[in-house]
């Protein structure tokens, strides 16, 4: 009995730790501290945002374009993410100049898989819902809402994001561009 309560407590602490990590990570984007944000990504990070199609109730497998094969909204690693941060820092990246205002809201956070185990968590699959609000100029406003499938990994004692798969709830993207980070 006690043992299982300990385990529950441990899981709760881990959940809290990872939530706080993801909140802080999102804050760095919203505060536009992009270089610091890059530090929180593993070298082999993959961010992958498939395109959504309108399909029949029994064709869930066709609903999103396929990883490693099809066109997506975003499919990139650290090199390209770093280039994007450099691009913003030129001060000439008109899509983000003047700066956009963004807020990430992260909710419904669940730890889907802990490896190798709870006593020594080194990699955790996290599922969460998000809203990424962007406002720029006077009236331009985007609401990007969906589910996120993150994998966080402990590197030298600190959590980092190793993978982020984003399922947007839009088939026709209603934002003119995607120049912020999920």
């Amino acid at each position: 009995m006690l043992e299982s309560q300990d385990a529950k407590l441990q899981e709760l602490l881990l959940q809290r730790e990872i939530e706080q990590f993801l909140f802080e990570e999102a804050s760095l984007i919203d505060e536009r501290r992009f270089k610091e944000w890059l530090e929180l990504l593993t070298e082999d990070i993959r961010v992958y945002v498939p395109i959504v199609r309108n399909v029949r109730y029994d064709q869930a497998e066709l609903e999103r374009t396929k990883e490693f094969k099809d066109t997506c909204w975003v499919d990139e690693g650290k090199e390209t993410l770093t280039q994007r941060v450099q691009q913003i820092a030129t001060g000439l990246h008109w899509a983000e100049e003047p700066r956009s205002r963004t807020t990430h809201l992260l909710t419904n956070i669940r730890l889907a898989e802990i490896s190798p185990d709870l006593s020594d968590p080194r990699e955790v699959q996290v599922r969460l819902n998000f809203m990424l609000y962007r406002n720029r100029g006077q009236v331009e406003t985007d609401f990007l809402v969906g589910k996120r499938f993150d994998r966080v990994r402990k590197v030298d004692g600190a959590w980092k994001v190793a993978r982020r798969e984003v399922h947007l709830d839009q088939s026709v993207l209603l934002a003119k561009n995607l120049t912020t980070f999920f």
């Binding site: 945002v49 066109t71 997506c72 909204w73 975003v74 499919d75 990139e76 390209t80 280039q83 994007r84 691009q87 990246h93 008109w94 899509a95 331009e140 993207l173 934002a175 003119k176 561009n177 995607l178 120049t179």
Partner: peptide, 23 residues
Amino acid sequence: RHYYMRYSGPGGMTESDDLENWQ
């Protein structure tokens, strides 16, 4: 495919700036 996506489309590092200008 990776190059096309980082160049073109709404997430493209080239096209995203065109879209701002056209809008």
